[in-house]
């Protein structure tokens, strides 16, 4: 295993996609990236929450807010499922946060968050807080669960460089659907300050739920 390849094993990985005004999505992206539009003037916000139990940064919980962008598709390369630009990440531990910043160049909230997972019948509710202040409440529902392995392109940037990492998500059971059954409440908070909350729908158009999986980062490529 390459030293610069990161493995993060999780019990739960939830990701919901919401339509966000392209105008807002552009504000969340660096100039070099354009949002991927699902419809005219409507881009995609991804809200992901993970419950990692072991891996390069030990156990921790993580909230990732991303905007979907066009992937890099080239002949002879594996096709990614999607590409994203994480514009804000928050973790429950300092170790998780430092690793995300130093190793993967991800912008972070510099405070620990508290993540509470509550499982219901074929659904998972997550509440994320920071210092007692609510950040979000997310409910994801399941459809059929099958083993899967997915490839994503993740783009990052620091002060002077742009990077890309391939992220492979491999899980024992994975559900993905567009039944519009989940829900989201985003609260006004430093974490969500770039998002026009009034414009955001309260239901995801797509819900993704992976259980007992691993997130594998490839080494960063400088673009």
């Amino acid at each position: 295993m390459s030293e610069s390849t990161g493995h993060y094993y999780f019990k739960e990985g939830l990701s919901c996609l919401f339509e966000i005004a392209t105008e807002n999505a552009r504000q969340l992206l660096p100039g070099a990236l354009q949002p991927l539009e699902r419809r005219p003037e409507s881009s995609v916000l991804s809200v992901s929450v993970f419950d990692f139990f072991k891996g390069d940064a030990g156990p921790y919980q993580e909230l990732v807010l991303s905007v979907l962008v066009p992937p890099l598709v080239t002949l002879g390369e594996r096709l990614p499922k999607a590409a994203l630009y994480p514009f804000m990440v928050a973790t429950s531990t300092k170790l998780g946060r430092l690793q995300g910043i130093d190793r993967w160049k991800l912008p972070h909230l510099m405070k620990d968050i508290d993540v509470a997972f509550t499982e219901g019948e074929k659904k998972m509710h997550v509440r994320v807080e920071e210092g007692g202040e609510p950040i979000l409440e997310l409910t994801t529902t399941g459809h059929t669960f099958d083993p899967t392995e997915l490839l994503f392109h993740s783009f990052m940037s620091d002060d002077c460089k742009n990077f890309k990492a391939d992220i492979t998500m491999k899980g024992a059971s994975y559900s993905e659907h567009e039944f519009e059954q989940g829900s989201l409440v985003l609260f006004g908070h430093e974490m969500t300050s770039g998002i026009m909350l009034d414009d955001l729908p309260d239901r995801p158009f797509r819900e993704q739920w992976m259980r007992n999986g691993v997130e594998i980062f490839s080494p960063l490529e400088v673009l």
Binding site: G76, E77, E149, L150, T168, I216, S218
Partner: peptide
């Protein structure tokens, strides 16, 4: 996973 990741075009399904 790492092997698949670098396996090139043949059978590149996931």
């Amino acid at each position: 996973v790492e092997d698949k990741h670098t396996s090139g075009k043949a059978g590149r399904g996931m």
